[in-house]
Simulated scan of single mutants.
Amino acid sequence: MNRPALLVAVALTASTGLLLTACGSGGSTDSASDKIKGADSSGAKASASPSAPTSKDRAGRPKITLPKEFQANFEGWTNSDPKLQAILDDGREELRSKYAAIIESNPDSDAVAFYNSGSSLKSAREWIKSFTDTDDDLIGKVTVSRPQVHINDTGSGVLFYCVDERKASTKNRKTGKVTTTPDKPESVLQYRERLDKTSQGVWKNVSLTTVAGGCR
């Protein structure tokens, strides 16, 4: 069963990982002001992961909960600049919202809509639906690390990070069949996001490209 490549020229089978075909919406982050120096390198050593934001938020950010059967561990997800930390926080919850929507079998998740807009929201829902259509759940864990973030010349946030899926699997809800992610460099993806800040102060994802093996 093939998962659809979303707006990018990547077409890998479901057996090669959870997100390897979860790519691109609304263009690329490769303009001059969106590039991050050393984005394809290993980056600095990660620090301990911070806890998830609380549900009490004046912007109405949703509380996103993942079950113990699937863990998304964020390492080094801190920045001394409060403005950049805000982008990291919303970027983290955007990814967690998509995992939660797959697990809840809910492509129309309000949390996904909260953190995505325009074509990014459309492609996110299509990607989630590719799991729900085949009745697949997520188990195991992913490690999300090496975040690099800045605000570009137009005021948009630019966020690059790595997702290691090698300890994650899909599990079919009906048959119980587990499909593991191969232990290969291609199973470590680089996410490249552009985010715009809303009037409520939320950094919404408007563009996403993923590069399989981009974090070697």
Rank of each mutant, 00 (worst) to 15 (best):
R194S: 12
G201Q: 08
E104D: 13
N116G: 10
F70L: 06
E94G: 03
D153C: 10
G155L: 11
G91D: 02
T175Q: 09
L19W: 06
R61Q: 08
R58N: 12
K35C: 09
E165R: 10
A39G: 14
K129L: 03
S51R: 13
Y115N: 00
S120D: 09
E186A: 05
G213C: 08
P62F: 00
S156T: 13
T16N: 10
A44L: 10
L12T: 07
G38M: 05
L19I: 03
I128H: 05
N2G: 07
G24L: 05
V149P: 08
S169E: 14
A32R: 14
I36L: 15
E186F: 02
K68M: 08
S130T: 04
V10Y: 00
V10P: 01
N79V: 10
K171R: 13
S55F: 00
V163R: 04
C215D: 05
T198K: 02
R92F: 02
S199T: 10
P4M: 05
F74D: 12
A86C: 11
D34A: 15
A212L: 00
A9P: 11
Y191F: 13
I139P: 12
Q71K: 11
P185S: 00
L18M: 06
A52Y: 02
V206A: 10
S97M: 01
A86W: 05
G118R: 07
T65V: 13
K204C: 05
E165T: 08
V202G: 04
W77Q: 08
N152G: 13
F114M: 00
V178C: 06
S41T: 11
V10N: 02
K63R: 04
Q190T: 06
W203H: 05
A5C: 14
T210I: 03
S42I: 03
M1S: 13
T21L: 02
A11S: 13
L19Q: 04
L95S: 09
S47C: 14
L208K: 14
C215Y: 10
K83L: 12
G27V: 00
I64A: 04
R92W: 03
A124V: 00
R61H: 04
A59S: 09
R92S: 06
G76Q: 06
S105P: 07
S42F: 02
W77M: 12
